[in-house]
Nucleic acid binder design. Sequence first.
DNA 1: CCCGTGACTGGCA
DNA 2: ATGCCAGCCACGG
Length: 110
Amino acid sequence: MTNNNFGEDFYEHVYRVVAEIPEGRVTTYGAIASYLGIASGARMVGYALNKSHKAGIPAHRVLNRLGQLTGRAHFPDDTMRERLQQENISFTEEYTVDIEKHFWNPNEMS
DNA sequence: CCCGTGACTGGCA
DNA sequence: ATGCCAGCCACGG
C-alpha cells in the first residue's frame, strides 16, 4: 500500500475515464487528473497509463496539454500516431494534434 | 531511508 | 513567442 488516499483505486479511475474517451476525440493528462480531484497529478496519470499497457484502453487518445504525443515511445513503432489518424484526428505537426479541435472534457461523460 | 526519474504543467525570464 | 525551472508525487534501486 501507499500513504496516499487513492492507492490502486486511482489507477482504476484513470482507466475508467480513458475508456470513455470517444473515437476521434482526445484529452490531456491534466484534464483527467483534474477530473479525479488531483489538479497536480498529471504525472501520476501518465504513470498510471504506463502501467496500463494490458488494460485494453484507448490510451493513445491521451496527450499532453499542447496536443503532443508525448507517450508515443511507449507504443510499438508509430502505433499511437497511426491510431489517431485512423480516427480522422487532424495534426498540426507530425507528432502534434489539433487539441483545440478534438479536445474532450471528462466532465462531458455521457 | 535517500535519491533520481518521469506518458506533466504553469509561471517566469 | 520560445524556452527554462521548479513543483509535483509514486516508484524502484
